[in-house]
Amino acid sequence: MKRLEDIPKKDIFEAPEGYFDRLPSVIQSRVTTESSRWTLFAQPVWKYALSLAFLAAGLYWFMLRPATKSPEQMLASVDTASLIAYLNESDMSTEELMESVPLDNKDVDEIHAGSLQNLLPDDSILMELESDIEFEN
């Protein structure tokens, strides 16, 4: 068979039995469902409800968001051992450290006194040194 006109015109696609009896009610129910859904959302009360919901969500976010900590608060939450370990490992010199920390004169005097105290050998070493000197003499 070579030509289209030689083929009898026939529709081989058939719908299941009763399909066209059921289809109008299926479509009608879909239309009703979709219409009622849109009608419900078109009610003025929904506009107010949505606005209120947005407002409540905004307030909730504003009130319950974590407060921003100041640098001092953040530093206070780190334990001393960790701070000392960090400062020992960092390249920051004592001068740089002192420049970055606001200190008054009293603080500076105390640091210097402490530093000098640290430089002095303890009493037992001093006594040993004295006895060595006496022995040589």
Binding site: F13, A15, F20, L23, P24, V31
Partner: peptide
């Protein structure tokens, strides 16, 4: 709308099915 569906459903289904 029900009348419209009944009037056109077979023709529309036929086009779609093919």
């Amino acid at each position: 709308f029900n009348l419209l569906v009944r009037a056109y459903q077979q023709r529309i289904y036929r086009i779609a099915r093919k």
